[in-house]
Design a protein around this nucleic acid. Structure first.
Lengths: 136, 136
DNA sequence: ATCTTAGTTGCGAATTATTCGCAACTGGAA
DNA sequence: TTCCAGTTGCGAATAATTCGCAACTAAGAT
């Protein structure tokens, strides 16, 4: 584990939101001024393989890039409102059951699970505005 | 609905596999020689919004691009083996239950659901080879 | 402590994937 | 038929990501 990866993992652990590679770079450079963007990409790839972080695309609401977050002990689901762009994080034991059922039925091992939902959030369905309601 | 979109939707409906934009383009040009790649991207975007096709990334096993498939009446789950690259499509009613539960609990409407799993398939866990076992 | 080396970094250039601007065209409603 | 909002082809532009390579560094062996 190099200093670069520690800092990058730390940035993601402390961030309360989903960051793209460029934003991770901006923040990490405050501790590590010489850090190169290519290193950020390589580190994110390694951290992903190590199961320390997860990658998302939030239904491409904001472009084709990817977002990253520190992995927690329990997987959660991401719902992106396609009207206002808000992101809602959802946890439910049914998700764990679903994964367990699939592993059992198909004799495979799940290492990473990404459930991304898109649709219309409750606030957008009632009001007609375009401001994010769900937490990002 | 323009001829271009019809052909593109048709290519995806007939394909037994997941195609990236460039491959859709190659196939669609057989009926529509002048078709431009930019049009393919724009059409895929429209068809996605119409709910006719779905977009996947298959856990980025083969790069950072996206894959497309015609949508069927029942959503399915994609498992990508991170050892051999094989893709397994999985259906289970638990997935429908999970979506219904989320809609109910959070008062939102799900328009598109993408569950992508990564891990090790049964064959890879037993044999140590790197050949795809699951159907692509 | 020092050596060793497999793996990592910084750098800039290259590649891939996707989008844009604009003038010409076209599907389908009136 | 006329009309027009939406679509297309085109090439250039942009975003996102990866590569090649020489210099460095973490961490295990000596």
């Amino acid at each position: 584990m190099t200093r670069q990866r520690q800092v990058i993992a730390d940035v993601l652990q402390k961030a309360g939101e989903h960051l793209d590679a460029a934003e991770v770079w901006r923040r990490a450079r405050q501790q590590l001024p010489g850090l190169h963007l290519a290193t950020v990409y390589r580190s994110l790839e390694s951290l992903k393989k190590l199961g320390i972080i997860d990658e998302l695309d939030l239904m491409h609401y904001r472009g084709t890039g990817h977002y990253y977050e520190a992995r927690t002990n329990k997987d959660h689901i991401h719902f992106t409102c396609q009207r206002c762009g808000g992101v809602l994080e959802i946890q439910t034991s049914l998700f764990e059951k679903l994964k367990a059922q699939i592993e059992g039925r198909h004799g495979l091992t799940i290492r990473v699970a990404r459930l991304e939902l898109g649709g219309v959030c409750g606030s957008c369905a009632s009001t007609e505005d375009q401001t994010p309601h769900a937490a990002a």
